[in-house]
Design a binder for these strands. Structure first.
Length: 862
RNA sequence: GGGCGGUUAGCUCAGCUGGUAGAGCACUUGCCUUACAAGCAAGGGGUCGCUGGUUCGAGCCCAGCACCGCCCACCA
């Protein structure tokens, strides 16, 4: 108890690490795999990259998921929050390559096997960092059952999915246009490409027409790709070029004959209306080329240099060099018409930041349309519900237009494709775990897109394809919480894979949370220097403060980071700590919360707080279940500050200091009951301070985190009489305090007067004390100095030294004129025939009642 | 080009099925009142982006416009 006495300020930095230890040691976060998914509660954490450090997004999402997990754990569910990390192909490979570079070596120099060992080594060393950071946040993940997307068992699942999809014909190998990322030296998927606006130059080139003096001029931003041109296209309806369709153009510099074709894709009004067709290096041209059966030439290699196909003059040049060389050569041949600046958007690699080089490559693809159908249905018929709902349409629109997914990556770190090739005796391909019998089989060197394995996360973590107890107990999961940027990249694919392989949707709810921006509205990013490290914030304000702040600032849209909200959370923790000190340092150490008299103590404020507690619980529960964490957090704050501390604890202070005997026992039990209920209410949001306080509660057993809440309150738990009486009393105290301030009465002075109002039978003493009035029953010969309206009547102030009569008179005049204005407004409204005739009767009635009250008050002030 | 958000107090944001605008922070004033001075009490502060419309009544509904942000998309 002495610590309680001494610590007037809650010290999160000292308490929190200690509490984390207790939670982890308790085993509470690891539920046994019993029962079924219907009766249990589970969430699969979006696995952070092993290379990662906790950022604001993790902190917010961690707080959200932890609220849900703790909330349902307290409701008696076996709550499993699936923990783990993602191997994050490119990101991790990059980290280790950087390390090798610092040692003066490289991935290529050490070789594939040694490199992979290095990455595993790296993972052993740094892979636990982000997990520890989640612990620091208070996240009650099942750390005892941590998964990694490259674990042996997980890899088996990935392999099986690949093999099965291949057997179904959904995974295939093809020469196709891909987004080549020169930065990572790999193909990447459409979703990993971002558009950026750049200023290029539009180059106009004249192509001579065969056997004619004519030329046809085309415009391009990539003149170097002309070397791979295989046609020139015009719009079929374009009169300027109609006579050329079916003719032949001669490709400058190369001399190749190009058919002049007609295609509706060409916009006559754009550029010259004639388009060079380069199927090998432009996605549109690729489509046109396939439509017309054109040859596909590659003049740019995967190394970002011109290939032999580009011709002797250009082979080996970089793209930039080639571009200059081509332009110079065109100029020399007199084929360059003009160049002009041109602003447009071009694709860049999201990962490496380098400009995407579209080229035709032999890759593995996955057909998505067949898997998309059931995944669309699952969302449309509500088996998966997306919150906020507007994202449903975004999801459906994307899924309905889904395209094949390039799943192979030219990296070393990841799930290697279970594909085997041999060239003798005949070229052959085999897909399976191990190569078939026979000599000469070699495994495909490529690995799978990281998102391919992530797509299996909700069930591969639970042991699929084996029918494990975990899978039975926790699949499907309940909620998937994430930011919107991976709705397609990850969420959609999990739904498809879950339905296809685990036989059910992977989760029932998808919650799309806010993106936290920097305080100035820019995106939080390390490179911009706008990032705020949640660990620094935890250091300064405590994990509870950060959790509360993030939850309170979150919303259905993007929000700016609000240091004030975090501070508000820190203060809430401190407030709760001090409120608890007040109670715990004064109750009998033998008191028990469960001894609280079921039929009440007879004190109206005790009835009131229990009723308000039920109201708060009902409201907060509803918010949590609607994924409205901001309102849940703020409702908690309002209850603790606005009801528990500001009023209830102030109301019971005299009893707290003086009560004895039976009354004392009843009070102590009631206080402990109220405190315990409050701690339970607050725990999901601010778990640390509540757990710490719980350790000082007499009779408290075990961890608060392991405690179950009582049944949800019903209407019967509300006490209308007490709520009305206290609402009036509070309004009266506020009116009296306001009046004191207005007349500048001395802060300590007790002002004499008398109460002439109904409804204060049980609260008059409270009102007098809290407003610092001396309220008599009768006039007792005193002179009336002022009248203060309160609900149900008035307080008449008696003349005394404490009251400046002049100030009181001015105050009264002000109130009268304010009332006059309000009455006029009311009367005006009621005099409006339209209002009286057309507004709902209840609204009109309320207006009349209000007018009556105002008039009554004005008369009282006469 | 299509779509989705946003525009409310000095700042960051709430405002449920339309009924005379709220919170936190900041600001002003008064209080070291035996839980908390990183506290308590009282208070000032808003033509709800603009223009029309519907309605007895609009921050909320409808139309248009203006900015800001995001997503999707094959105009060289």
């Amino acid at each position: 108890m002495s610590t309680l006495e001494a610590k007037t300020r809650y010290d999160a930095a000292e308490v929190e690490p200690r509490i984390v230890r207790r939670w982890l040691d308790s085993g509470l976060f690891h539920p046994e795999p019993e029962g079924d998914a219907g009766e249990n509660y589970s969430i699969a954490v979006p696995p952070p990259n092993v290379t990662g450090a906790l950022h604001m997004g993790h902190a917010l999402n961690g707080s959200i998921q932890d609220v849900l997990i703790r909330y349902h754990r307290a409701r008696g569910k076996r709550a499993k929050w699936i923990a783990g990390t993602d191997h994050a192909g490119i990101a991790t490979q990059k980290q280790v390559e950087k390390q090798l570079a610092e040692e003066g070596t490289s991935r290529e120099a050490v070789g594939r096997v040694a490199f992979e060992q290095r990455v595993w080594e790296w993972r052993r060393q740094y892979g636990g960092t982000i997990i520890e950071q989640f612990q620091r946040l208070g996240a009650s993940l099942d750390y005892a059952d941590e998964r990694f997307t490259l674990d042996e068992r997980y890899a088996m699942a990935v392999e099986k999915v690949f093999v099965d999809l291949h057997a179904k014909g959904l995974i295939y190998r093809d020469h196709y246009m891909v987004n080549w990322d020169p930065g990572s030296g790999s193909a990447i998927s459409d979703l990993e490409v971002e558009d950026r606006e750049v200023v290029d130059e539009l180059t106009y080139i004249a192509y001579p027409i065969k056997d004619s003096g004519e030329t046809i001029t085309v415009a391009t931003v990539r003149p170097e790709t002309m070397l791979a041109d295989t046609a020139v296209a015009v719009n079929p309806g374009d009169d300027r070029y109609k006579h050329l369709i079916g003719g032949t153009a001669i490709l400058p510099l190369v001399g190749r004959e190009l058919p002049i074709i007609a295609d509706d894709y060409v916009k006559p009004e754009f550029g010259t209306g004639a388009l060079k067709i380069t199927p090998g290096h432009d996605p549109n041209d690729f489509e046109i080329g396939r439509r017309h059966g054109l040859p596909e030439l590659n003049v740019i290699g995967e190394d970002g240099r011109m290939t032999a196909q580009a011709g002797e003059r250009f082979a080996g040049l970089t793209i930039v060099q080639a571009q200059q060389a081509v332009i110079a050569a065109l100029e020399a041949e007199g084929r360059l018409v003009r160049r002009e600046p041109y602003t447009h958007v071009v694709p860049f690699s999201h990962r490496s930041g380098e400009r995407i080089e579209p080229l035709i490559s032999l890759q593995w693809f996955m057909r998505m349309d067949e898997l998309a159908k059931p995944a669309i249905d699952a969302v449309k018929d509500g088996r998966v519900r997306i919150h906020p709902e507007r994202w449903t349409r975004v999801y459906v629109d994307w899924m309905e237009n889904i395209r094949p997914w390039c799943v192979s990556r030219q990296l070393w770190w990841g799930h290697r494709l279970p594909v085997w090739y041999r060239s003798h005796p005949t070229p052959d391909t085999y897909v399976g775990h191990a190569p078939p019998d026979g000599e000469g089989w070699e495994q495909d060197p490529d690995v799978l897109d990281t998102w391919f394995s992530s797509a299996l996360w909700p069930f591969a973590t639970l042991g699929w394809p084996q029918q494990t107890p975990e899978l039975g107990a926790f699949y499907p999961t309940d909620v998937l919480s994430t930011a919107r940027d991976i709705l397609f990249l990850w969420v959609a694919r999990m739904i498809m894979m879950g339905l296809e392989f685990a036989g059910d949707v992977p989760f029932e709810h998808v919650y799309i949370h806010s993106v936290i921006q920097a305080p100035d509205g820019r995106r939080m990013s390390k490179s911009l220097g706008t990032g705020i490290d949640p660990l620094d914030e935890i250091e300064k304000h405590g994990a509870d403060g950060v959790r509360f702040g993030l939850l309170a600032m979150s919303s259905s849209q993007d929000v700016r980071y609000s240091a004030e909200k975090v501070q508000q959370g820190e203060q809430l923790a401190n407030k709760l700590w001090n409120a608890s000190r007040l109670i715990l340092t004064r109750v009998d150490p033998d008191a028990r919360a469960d001894a609280a008299p079921a039929n009440g103590t007879g004190f109206i404020e005790d009835r009131w707080i229990r009723s308000r507690l039920a109201a708060a619980r009902t409201m907060i529960d509803a918010h949590v279940e609607a994924f409205d964490f901001s309102h849940a957090a703020l409702a908690l704050y309002d209850f603790v500050y606005g009801e528990l501390c500001d009023w209830y604890l102030e109301l019971i202070k005299p009893r707290l200091y003086e009560a004895e005997g039976e009354e004392r026992a009843a009070l102590d039990a009631t206080l402990l009951h109220v405190l315990t209920e409050t701690l339970m209410l607050a725990h999901p949001v601010i778990p640390f301070v509540t757990e710490e306080i719980w350790s000082f509660v007499p009779g408290a057993e075990g961890l608060l985190a392991a405690r179950r809440v009582g049944a949800a309150p019903t209407g019967a738990d509300r006490d209308e009489e007490a709520e009305r009486a206290l609402a009036d009393a509070i309004a009266a105290v506020q009116a009296l305090r306001g009046w004191r301030d207005g007349v500048r009465a001395a802060a300590g002075a007790r002002i004499p007067g008398r109460l002439e109002a109904a409804g204060y039978e049980q609260t008059a003493a409270h009102v007098a004390r809290l407003a610092r009035f001396e309220l008599a029953d009768s006039k007792n010969g005193a002179k009336d100095a002022a009248t203060i309206a309160i609900p149900g009547g008035a307080v008449i102030v008696h003349a005394s030294d404490a009251v400046d009569l002049g100030a009181a008179e001015r105050q009264l005049a002000e109130r009268r004129s304010a009332l006059g204005a309000e009455i006029a407004r009311c009367e005006g409204k009621l005099a409006n025939d339209g209002f009286v005739a057309k507004a709902p009767p209840a609204v009109v009635e309320a207006e009349r009642a209000k007018l009556a009250l105002l008039r009554e008050e004005l008369e009282g002030l006469a």
